[in-house]
């Protein structure tokens, strides 16, 4: 029961992020929302790991955190108006 409550609150937060992705007036707004969404998914995976009792959900969580960080850094560099390697 309490797990359903956690999951629904997290899903509500995710919906708010998606609202910001859709409505954000500038590109950085959308990027922030995607970054935050990635961090929420990490929490989601950790809770799934408890419920299922398997540790590979935490592997997914670490990989997702890494991917979210890299995506944010790459988009930030793009926003600065510079190329991939300069």
């Amino acid at each position: 029961m309490i797990w359903w409550m956690f999951f629904s609150i997290l899903a509500l937060s995710g919906l708010m992020c998606l609202y910001r992705v859709g409505a954000g007036p500038t590109p950085p707004d959308r990027t922030v929302a995607i970054d935050i969404f990635g961090t929420l998914v990490v929490g989601f995976c950790a809770l799934l790991g408890i419920i299922e009792g398997r540790d590979f959900f935490l592997n997914i969580a670490i990989a997702w955190a890494l991917l979210s960080f890299l995506g944010t850094v790459a988009l930030a560099k793009y926003l600065e108006g510079r190329g991939f390697d300069e």
Binding site: T26, P27, P28, T31, V32, D35, S68, F69, T72, V73, L75, A76, K77, Y78, L79, E80, G81
Partner: peptide, 13 residues
Amino acid sequence: TGAHALARGSHRS
């Protein structure tokens, strides 16, 4: 770190 990079990038853009 991601937040800092994003703030700097959006200020420069």
